[in-house]
């Protein structure tokens, strides 16, 4: 009688594989259910485990970048230093005029009896994980409930550029959902006349909006959020107008590269 050992072994192996796969899938489903029912439990643990690795990586990268500067020639460093000094002087002059405009803006609002927002309390946060790390267009920052951060607090770069809102908070970290997350719709004002539009996020700091033709927007126009503050939302990057379409398609882009940011500000009283 011929032995069917190999066939029997192969069938046994196939059943074992199927059982193992079903078992693993079941465990994964249970964990996913736990995440749905208790949203912060497993996310909090994951963030707690990952935060030290992100901070170590940031520390190591900054050390390597600083050390790499030692390899550059003295001449190159002096030239770079002089260029940066000239750039700082030029930026200081621009900031001076910006301060004057802000001052004038506040006085005009007072004149027209508009409510001036209170001074914003903010917390500075380091970006631990950038949007490129996931498919969700989210950031993870190193400030959490312990630093006074709350859900839906606005998040800015460089004090004046909106990028998103706090979506999840943990003790020492927070998840920021960017306004450019796919499907996220934000009401904005386009250009000097603040023409109302709905900007839909398409990921990576990019937005798309439909506007009626002939409204006079141009590439380079600033897009803002429709309240009384002077916060930049995006810049008009491209306008696509089909002659047969009564609407034009405007593409907005965040003026800062979202994948390069290292620091953000979280406004804790808005």
């Amino acid at each position: 009688m011929m032995s069917n050992y190999l066939l029997h072994h192969k069938e046994k192996g196939k059943h074992l594989f199927t059982k193992a796969f079903v078992g693993v899938l079941l465990v994964a489903l249970i964990l996913a259910l736990v995440q749905i029912v208790f949203p912060k439990s497993l996310s909090g643990v994951s963030n707690f485990v990952s935060a030290p690795f992100w901070k170590s990586k940031n520390f190591a990268v900054s050390k390597i970048v600083n050390s790499a500067g030692l390899l550059r020639s003295k001449k190159a460093l002096i030239e770079a230093n002089n260029d940066l000094k000239a750039q700082i002087e030029s930026n200081d002059l621009v900031l001076l005029s910006l301060d004057l405009f802000k001052e004038e803006n506040i006085r005009l609002k007072e004149l027209f009896d508009r409510q001036i927002p209170d001074t914003e309390d903010s917390v500075l946060g380091v970006v631990l994980a950038r949007p490129s790390a996931s498919m969700y267009d989210t950031l993870i920052i190193d400030v959490g409930s312990g630093s006074g951060v709350r859900k839906d607090n606005y998040v800015y770069i460089a004090g004046d550029i909106f990028i998103g809102k706090i979506d999840e908070i943990y003790k020492k970290t927070s998840l920021v959902r960017l306004f450019s997350s796919p499907g996220e719709v934000t009401q904005v004002g386009v250009g000097l006349e603040s023409i109302s539009a709905n900007a839909e996020g398409i990921g990576g700091g990019n937005f798309i909006a439909k506007l009626p033709r002939g409204i006079g927007i141009e590439e380079g126009d600033i897009v803002t959020m429709p309240d009384v503050s002077l916060k930049v939302f995006a810049v008009v990057e491209e306008i696509d107008a089909d002659p047969s379409d009564p609407f034009l398609t405007a593409l907005f882009k965040n003026p800062v590269n979202i994948n390069d940011i290292k620091w953000v500000q979280v406004i804790t009283n808005r």
């Binding site: 693993v24 465990v27 994964a28 964990l31 996913a32 995440q35 497993l42 996310s43 643990v45 994951s46 963030n47 990952s50 994980a129 790390a133 996931s134 498919m135 969700y136 267009d137 989210t138 993870i140 979506d167 999840e168 998840l175 959902r177 997350s181 796919p182 499907g183 996220e184 719709v185």
Partner: peptide, 15 residues
Amino acid sequence: FWGLFGDFLYSASVT
């Protein structure tokens, strides 16, 4: 499990 871990870390509901 790695996929779940990635979702626990980064996920926000996709509208």
